[in-house]
Design a protein around this nucleic acid. Sequence first.
DNA 1: CCTGCAATTGACCGTCCGGTCAAATATTCA
DNA 2: TGAATATTTGACCGGACGGTCAATTGCAGG
Lengths: 202, 202
Amino acid sequence: MSKPRTRIQQRNSEAILDAALEVFSQHGFRGATLDQIAEVAGLSKPNLLYYYPSKEAIHVALLSGLLDTWLDPLREMDPAGEPVEELLAYVRRKLELSRDFPRESRLFANEILQGAPRIQEAIEGDLRTLVQEKAAVLTRWMDEGRIARVHPVHLIFSIWALTQHYADFDVQVHAVLGPAEPDPYPEAHLYLETVFRRLLAV
Amino acid sequence: MSKPRTRIQQRNSEAILDAALEVFSQHGFRGATLDQIAEVAGLSKPNLLYYYPSKEAIHVALLSGLLDTWLDPLREMDPAGEPVEELLAYVRRKLELSRDFPRESRLFANEILQGAPRIQEAIEGDLRTLVQEKAAVLTRWMDEGRIARVHPVHLIFSIWALTQHYADFDVQVHAVLGPAEPDPYPEAHLYLETVFRRLLAV
DNA sequence: CCTGCAATTGACCGTCCGGTCAAATATTCA
DNA sequence: TGAATATTTGACCGGACGGTCAATTGCAGG
């Protein structure tokens, strides 16, 4: 992307991306407006377009870094490590991502819900490749009898689904648990650890 | 809602709701346009507004019936039944809902992602009540030693997350599995059955 | 056939949207 | 300081949006 030179450029383009993340993640691409983003960022609309040439450019700038960040925890899963602990560490890292970056998770969810028009090639490329690669590792672990045999790709899907649920359906989670339980993550962590320990035990 | 009297009203208001489901589920409320819905429905825009007074009214009409349909499988979970089989039956019914009504699932996901502005009270009311009620049943089963002890509400969350993932993230699922595996549901069913059998085994 | 109501639509309205532009203001640096 | 450059903005544009309305067409029953 564009490299901000001055401090003002640095500060403003960051403020824009942060505001855009806020708005895009809540309303999706078409539902978000430049005026909204400008207001959240504390800038005028023409000033937004001084830093980014179009609404789409802002969206692309947000998405471009996102997929890598999102997949990093999976990349860190070490083929040479202890299988169950590696998988549980992945679950934990992914859950922390949901807790600490829920807007990013919702931005991604919105993009996928809308058919992934802007990151389809990345999904069919990098993401698919990485998943297939890690699925091969999982299969090897199963062949070696170190974890139970299940469909490796669906195993990865289930980690995504379970962890992202707490970010994407945050409103529902809090509504069901009630105001007495303001932070569901400690319980979620315990629960998910149980789920995958029992699933993978040989 | 309004009771359609004539066959024409029946046919058209159904066509409108079907078209609106298509468009809303893909673009969210703000991202959808009446012209788009009208085109999909094969009607003129003023004709849409002859059957429904506003864009919001269409959206509300769609959502009003949805939550009940969505929760029905959970309601059917029989407190007098065999615990593991009841839970697995719930998982299966929920997964079939994802397979057969993916647009409804995405509509719901969109609404929650956007903060559930139009169904928050229903979520904090009916949905919360039902979940708490069924969580009590699960807790009783755990007390009786008929299923393993885990957090009952998170158990329900995990069923939602795992089953809805296949509808909401459909694009990603197919991209990762590739064109060789056009229908992920048989494998998903097997996988989820394994997950919950192992999780709940005493 | 006619009457009366149901259904449909072209034309239109005010507003909002993404984006442009020229002018004004701040900042940098020789 | 002053010239050059970076930043900011009010005013505006064309098109799309949600919604209205008067007028037309379709249709059922007497």
